[in-house]
Design a protein around this nucleic acid. Structure first.
Lengths: 105, 105
DNA sequence: TTAACATTTCTATAATATTGGAAATGTAGA
DNA sequence: TCTACATTTCCAATATTATAGAAATGTTAA
């Protein structure tokens, strides 16, 4: 993963509404949650929600699929894996033992 | 770790200069690097560097110590550990097997 | 004490992000 | 087709963040 990619993913998660969205989607698993469901759970108005979903989608941390007139979002676990791998590799290296979880996990 | 803390740490790392600073400090280990050394390596002017160091320090990801007229910064591995633990716990849960490194690592 | 140096604070400016109402777009069912 | 509904786009207002020169602060060594 390039540093630019890592920065974008970190920025996507570095906002409370978006981190909450992502956490809900992680809990929901691959079935995901429709945009409206997220908005209702979190009390975020449609336009604002759409703005945040766009940021997370652009960072590849979530992915949308269309089902009828619903847009259902789900977490992209693979990309989150890559981010965590980047952090453990580049931000715990040198004296890796100090920073767990670490290693080949 | 509270979500606010996680957001602050993520925000601190979600900027290329700051992520680069942090990576250098991780490489440097506990000896750390003086502010001036970081500025020189990264080509960041003093005032800008100080601004970023402040953000990282406030997020507890780095810590300064004074040595003569130098301020030497080093990575706070324990806090980075906590952040990674938060991410693996809250952002890989539910279907944990999809997101490695995961589990008790 | 004075000069040199490291770093931070002050300050202003520019750039980017966040918010949400209103309108537009697209889909489903009557 | 018409209406209802889900979501996104458009837009403007507001807030936050990033940048860096210049001045201030603090430290060392002569």
């Amino acid at each position: 993963m390039k540093i630019e990619t890592a920065v974008e993913a970190l920025a996507a998660l570095a906002q409370e509404s978006r981190l909450s969205i992502f956490r809900l989607l992680v809990q929901a698993g691959k079935e995901g949650i429709a945009a409206g469901g997220l908005g209702e759970k979190l009390g975020i108005p449609p336009a604002t929600l759409s703005f945040h979903l766009k940021a997370l989608t652009h960072a590849r941390l979530i992915k949308p699929r269309t089902e009828g007139r619903f847009v259902i979002y789900s977490a992209n676990f693979a990309e989150m894996d890559r981010l965590i791998a980047y952090l453990t590799e580049h931000c715990c290296a040198g004296d890796a033992t100090q920073c767990a979880p670490v290693g080949k996990c």
